[in-house]
Design a protein around this nucleic acid. Sequence first.
DNA 1: ATGGTAGACGCTCTA
Length: 266
Amino acid sequence: MVRIASFNINGIKARLPRLIEWLEETGPDIVCLQEVKSQDEGFPADAFEKIGYGAIWHGQKSFNGVAILAKDAEPIEIRRGLPHLDAGDAGDDHARYIEADVALQDAKPIRVASIYLPNGNPQPGPKFDYKLQWMKRLRAHAKTIWAEEVPAVLAGDYNVVPRPIDIWSDKALTGDALRQPESIAAYRRMLGDGWTDALESRFPAGGVWTYWDYREGAWQQDRGFRIDHLLLSPQAADRLSSCGVDKDHRGREKASDHAPTWCELD
DNA sequence: ATGGTAGACGCTCTA
């Protein structure tokens, strides 16, 4: 059994005690982190090593930043950043994608990507255009992973609410980039390619949230939505045994605004 | 239409 989790931590410096606590309590085998918000040299790899996790990371000052942790293993980096599709992509220096092979205790390796998809607000505008282009690049690259016919998990903060039943109110965020038809269609196209949304497959009726805003008492009123997703290749989906959200970690002191989201493969 | 909170940074941006 392999547990793979995705966690947007919203700043690794502010979150480290909570992150270590969560790792020790739940013991995930592989973890994809987003919004590390730290430059490479500030990444606390030694703190993870102390509790038995190897790590690779792609940092950036102030914003973005992704990482992959593995219990009693060293992730083997495959790539950082998405391939370019157009000439305009060459100027993209955001740290939003890192991909690795993780081999746990003599098991066959699992391909893992940690994804921090652009938020895209305000829309319309250049940030929304960047989001849609990034999704186009992600889909194209996912096809090359697909072709390798390996167990693969593309995990992260997709900044897309896939369905009306994935948010506390269908009227919420209607003008927001997270719920625009173009964002949802781009996400759906990846599912159409054959990727399995782990939580959607296990909770088809919705009502599962992974994010609650810090503002307006969203957590207290359980006004959340689902934007953190685990997309599985067929070789991973065949092994899917369970999945869930570590919701109680959202309610703790100094918590991230996201909760850890995970799946288990046999 | 605005502002509510949080994090990193440095007198403001991103979400």
